[in-house]
Design a protein around this nucleic acid. Structure first.
Length: 411
RNA sequence: GCGAUCGUAGCUCAGUUGGUUAGAGCGCCGGUUUGUGGUACCGGAGGUCGGGGGUUCGAGACCCCUCGAUCGCCCCA
């Protein structure tokens, strides 16, 4: 590589080969499943006014305070490359009057941007698939959304991943729990890890999923959300779990599961690889493959009317790491030009093949004596030989009967 | 932002305690062989050893700086 060639931006990737096939498989499967569940497709801009994210996600979150790609455009408006889908979707819902379609089931996918240190399963430009149900406050919406996620993972052939489920309760429950946690951890502040001492003031819920053993000793006996749940919040959660059971979605209660962003209420969930599974191994230290929850307060933070909603997002790259290699479309016919004088006829044949729907390609360059080797290396089901007078025969035994029919009158 | 490991052909890597013109396999290009066939052999193109400084008679190897990559922490999908 010349030193003159510009390098790709850190944390961006050029996806090609087997990885690109896996990526496409994830997206195709998502598209198929979302149609099955009647989620409607939507496309949103990749950038928004910065306040869309700062107000929706929360100023103090890591995403907003240090991970956004923000810049001023020529009219000096602060813009930001979207670090997640939900805020932009909420903005679109409000500015386009999509309330008229409520409850609205939406699906989308595309690139997101976060200024983070890249590592396995984690990039600065990454890609997610996303599903949301907007304007639906009933627990059945949560069930529907999770059932779809569960089926998607199954259809992707991903195993060893479990739905971890929790409730953060309604706003009052959550606040009371938070206060209880602060009180509990403050008493032992000096014995917590440095990170958790910091968390105690910034985001006490986060202490619960600390990986530091010094914290874990205290986490076990920390106050549980259940003790603070209002009757309504408890009933809501029970209704969600009953629905999941009815829909055949396996789940596991995760009392210390919290989500990083401020807007979550009630249901919170993550699909996480089981410890020791092949999936956990493939993902390195990135655990969550799909995550989301209910965000009833979000629309108001953007100046809209109170609008209940649930959603999830999943990292396409992370899913792609779990689906294994996708075998490419079999090459049905390789046209082999043995004499350059037959090029026109070979080109015609190739064109006819493709119009008839046969996956086909042609070898017509380089040393004539090596063309056959090149053709064989691509593992075609049939090699169609063309000399100066045109097509005259094929080689290959696993040939498609339809192709053999097609070739009958070509000689 | 912090930490660890690593940067030698297009790719995967060798390069022995620092010592002549820096190597292999694969891939690519050409040739010979074979001739319903992914064979074998021969040859060719392609490297300022990530970049800069230093130590030394001599650095791909050692030291410093820098850039980049990978993995982990934080956080997250």
């Amino acid at each position: 590589m010349s030193k003159n060639t510009p390098k790709a931006i850190r944390g961006t990737q050029d996806i090609f080969g087997p990885d690109a096939e896996s990526f496409a498989f994830v997206v195709e499967t998502f598209e198929r499943v979302r149609k099955l569940y009647r989620f409607r497709r939507a496309e949103m801009p990749v950038f928004e006014k910065t306040e869309v994210f700062s107000r929706a996600i929360g100023e103090t979150t890591d995403v907003v305070s240090k991970e956004m790609y923000s810049f001023e455009d020529r009219s000096e408006t602060s813009l930001t490359l979207r670090p997640e889908f939900t805020a932009g979707i909420a903005r679109a819902y409000l500015t386009n009057g999509w309330q008229q379609h409520a409850p609205l089931k939406l699906a989308t996918h595309g690139p997101l941007f976060r200024y983070e240190r890249p590592q396995k399963g984690r990039y600065r430009q990454f890609h997610q698939i996303d599903a949301e149900i907007l304007g639906a406050g009933e627990p059945q919406a949560d069930v529907e959304l999770l059932a779809m996620a569960d089926q998607l993972l199954k259809e992707l052939g991903i195993e060893g991943v479990t739905l971890h489920l929790n409730t953060l309760g309604d706003a009052e429950s959550r606040d009371a729990w938070r206060a209880g946690l602060i009180e509990y951890f403050s008493a032992v502040e000096g014995e917590l890890s440095e990170d958790s001492q910091e968390r105690l003031h910034k985001n006490p819920l986060r202490i619960l999923d600390s990986k530091d053993p010094r914290d874990q000793a205290f986490v076990a006996d920390a106050p549980k959300i259940d003790a603070y749940l209002s009757d309504e919040a408890l009933a809501f959660f029970e209704s969600v779990t009953r629905g999941l059971d009815a829909a055949g979605v396996k789940w596991k209660r995760a009392e210390s599961l919290v989500r990083g962003l401020d807007y979550y209420r009630h249901t919170a969930f993550e699909f996480i690889p089981d410890e020791g599974s092949a999936a956990a191994d493939a993902l390195g230290s990135q655990s969550t493959v799909l995550g989301g929850g209910r965000y009833d307060g979000l629309m108001e933070s953007l100046g809209g009317p109170s609008t209940p909603a649930v959603g999830w997002a999943a990292g396409i790259e992370r899913l792609a790491m779990l689906v294994g290699e996708r075998s490419p479309e079999p090459l049905e016919a390789m046209v082999l030009l043995e004499d350059d004088a037959g090029l026109t006829k070979a080109t015609q044949l190739l064109s006819d093949l493709r119009k008839a729907g046969f996956v086909s390609d042609m070898i017509a360059s380089g040393s004539k004596k090596k063309r056959y080797d090149k053709a064989v290396k691509q593992d075609p089901r049939a090699i169609l030989r063309v000399n100066e007078s045109g097509y005259y025969g094929y080689a290959g035994d696993a040939i498609d009967p339809a192709l053999s029919e097609f070739l009958k009158d070509k000689v």
